[in-house]
């Protein structure tokens, strides 16, 4: 029994699932479901379709180079059965899986590093540019509570009031 990978979305094709297409040069295309098969028939490139693994790999969304992927590689020579080896492999599988998950999480975290700041920046800009849609600029001048709170650290209370006056003008 061999778990193949779908040609289009690179997911695992379990036995009895999907359809396989044999081209005249004997290249076999396996598909996990009709969705992938239809996309293939429409001659779509999996690298350009956003939900496929190929796209995510090309665009740096997923971890690509890692030693944990070596264990999942396709081997053409079948391993001779050895009881101890099989036991060890079964023990190693959850460990490797755990390592892979943590590494992927780290990759994701690295990728999303500047995300929060970017969102905040965009929101600020939108607020500054679009505040006139909520309240007329003249009304805003009279009531400054709708503008963004400015981070000004001033020790003396008198100076702060002066700053506020300056901002209104």
């Amino acid at each position: 029994m061999r778990l193949e990978k779908c040609w289009f979305c690179s997911s695992t094709v379990y036995p009895g699932h999907g359809i396989q297409f044999v081209r005249n040069d004997a290249k076999i295309f396996r598909f996990c479901r009709s969705k992938c098969h239809k996309n293939f028939k429409m001659k779509r490139n999996p690298r350009k379709v956003k939900w496929t693994k190929a796209y995510r790999r090309v665009h740096g969304k997923d971890m690509t180079q890692d030693s944990t992927f070596e264990f999942e590689r396709k081997r053409n020579r079948p391993e001779r059965y050895d009881r101890n080896l099989a036991e060890n492999v079964l023990k190693a599988i959850p460990k490797i899986e755990k390592i892979r998950v943590t590494r992927e999480e780290r990759h994701h975290k690295n990728r999303m590093k500047g995300k929060k700041r970017k969102i905040q920046k965009e929101a600020t800009r939108e607020l500054e540019q679009g505040i006139s849609l909520v309240k007329a600029p003249l009304a805003l001048q009279k009531d400054p509570s709708l503008t963004l709170p400015q981070k000004i650290k001033v020790s003396v209370s008198q100076q702060q009031s002066e700053d506020n006056n300056a901002m209104e003008e």
Partner: peptide
């Protein structure tokens, strides 16, 4: 030996050819 119409395999998956 080759048919473009898909044919079920013994495990439940399907196979089809170019011509």
């Amino acid at each position: 030996v080759r048919a473009a119409m898909q044919r079920g395999r013994c495990d439940g998956s399907e196979v089809k050819f170019d011509d």
